[in-house]
Design a protein around this nucleic acid. Structure first.
Length: 279
DNA sequence: CGCCAGGTGGCCC
DNA sequence: GGGCCACATGGC
């Protein structure tokens, strides 16, 4: 049983905000499966307790080296961002495994967070995310993932070139977290091309860049972000321009702004029905 | 029942 | 290149 002190960090926000899905509630905390590990983790105030992973791994995976206040300070004054940050500013963008992250977001199109999570846990239980066990489209379809089954098959065929199924060495080494991380993370460095994989469009590619390749300037545009920009910021443009707009407005850490706004909008904007009723 | 959901691919012009 | 539409399945 390990233990770690944390600052400006919220494990619940971090795991449940919709960036990562391979977790379950367990006791007073969570059971997490990531990067070929299964570990239990819980938070009590500023104390993080865990079992099944070492402190260096957790510091890196949970991005405990990121300083939310410093990140917020790189962005412009913005009342919507202030609200989102107040509500969700203690989440961290995890350093996910690229293959696991890709699989998760290939399940995301025209779905919703609870269902994505259910689907992902089912796919994990059924295949362990091993590419060799993800070639049977009909079998995958039986898990209830619908047309997304062929996306997984397409990705599994290319998994080798993505490091599919293998743990990442740079993380396993437990590199020293640096306080200079604000300047040291190279945007999008090292992301192999996802071109040719069915189901990978701008949105999925941006999510993988942001959540697994450290491209913290990435600004994935989905239905929620589109609504935030339209209904709050009054920006109405094609998605392609919204991505660029987000990068430009929020800067090299725009991905954090995106995630704060995303998480906040889901509760504050409410469902489409609620929005319509309000009119 | 009808509509919508962390989009994408394949058409049409 | 923008504007449609189907795509499986589930929730409301």
């Amino acid at each position: 049983m390990g233990s770690l002190r944390v600052r400006d960090f919220d494990l619940g926000q971090t795991l449940e905000c919709g960036q990562f899905f391979n977790w379950r509630r367990e006791g007073a905390g969570y059971r997490v499966q990531a990067r070929s590990r299964s570990f239990a983790v819980r938070q009590d105030g500023d104390r993080l307790s865990f079992e099944g992973a070492d402190p260096a791994f957790l510091r890196r995976f949970l991005a405990l080296d990121h300083d939310p206040g410093a990140i917020r300070a790189t962005m412009p004054r913005d009342r919507f961002l202030d609200e989102a940050f107040a509500a969700y500013g203690r989440l961290r963008l995890l350093r996910q495994d690229p293959w696991e992250c890709l699989v998760a977001f290939l399940l995301s199109p025209v779905s919703n967070i609870p269902r994505i999570q259910r689907n992902l846990l089912d796919v994990y239980e059924s295949t362990g995310f091993e590419p060799g066990r993800m070639q049977d489209e009909a079998g995958l379809r039986r898990l209830g993932i619908g047309f997304r089954a062929r996306f997984l098959v397409s990705a599994a065929k290319r998994a080798g070139s993505l490091g599919g199924g293998r743990p990442l060495s740079r993380l396993d080494g437990g590199g020293t977290p640096t306080r200079a991380v604000l300047a040291s993370e190279a945007p999008g460095a090292g992301r192999p091309s996802l071109e040719g994989i069915l189901g990978v469009g701008d949105k999925v590619a941006d999510c993988v860049s942001l959540f697994a390749y450290g491209d913290y300037g990435a600004f994935p545009v989905d239905t929620w972000i589109r609504r935030v920009l339209r209904e709050l910021y009054g920006v109405r443009k094609p998605d392609r321009e919204l991505r660029a707009w987000g990068r430009r407005r929020f800067g090299p850490w725009a991905g954090y702004a995106q995630q704060w706004l995303f998480a906040w909008s889901r509760e504050s904007l409410g469902g489409r029905r609620a929005a319509r009723a309000a009119c």
